[in-house]
Amino acid sequence: MTTFLALTIGVLFGTGTFLLLRRNALKVIIGLSLISHGANVLLVTSGGFGGNYPPIIGPGGPAYVDPLPQALVLTAIVISFGVTAFLVVLLYRLYKRTGTVDMDQIRRLKG
């Protein structure tokens, strides 16, 4: 399970980074949300895995999964959803104004 998740996180970060380096701004935004997903999965793993254990200590004994990282991830997902929605609207405005989503053609400011 840990290996599988490590691979998932790696693939999410790798794909995200690849997409971030594209000129198409829409792909950049998709890459950003992939990277936040990677970070979220990593945050979940910091709570530990115990198979099908519940996130509370039941009467049966101490086998449980730490609930806190799941709460944190929930918050982080909501935040990244909000920011991604804002970015998509922003890019749509920019597309309407300039007629392109190519960062090289949008670029006016010099950094």
């Binding site: 971030l20 701004a25 950049v28 950003l32 990277i35 936040s36 990677g38 970070a39 979220n40 990593l42 945050l43 793993t45 910091s46 709570g47 806190l68 990282p69 944190l72 982080a76 935040i79 990244s80 920011v83 804002f86 970015l87 922003l90 890019l91 920019l94 949008i106 670029r107 006016r108 400011l109 950094g111």
Partner: peptide
């Protein structure tokens, strides 16, 4: 355009912040 740049770099930073928080926890 400035906001797109600003938001992109800070969104990456937020992901890294989460990584650091996850590692710390």
């Amino acid at each position: 355009e400035a906001t797109l740049k600003y938001a992109t770099i800070n969104l990456i930073a937020s992901a890294v912040f989460l990584l650091a928080v996850g590692g710390l926890y």
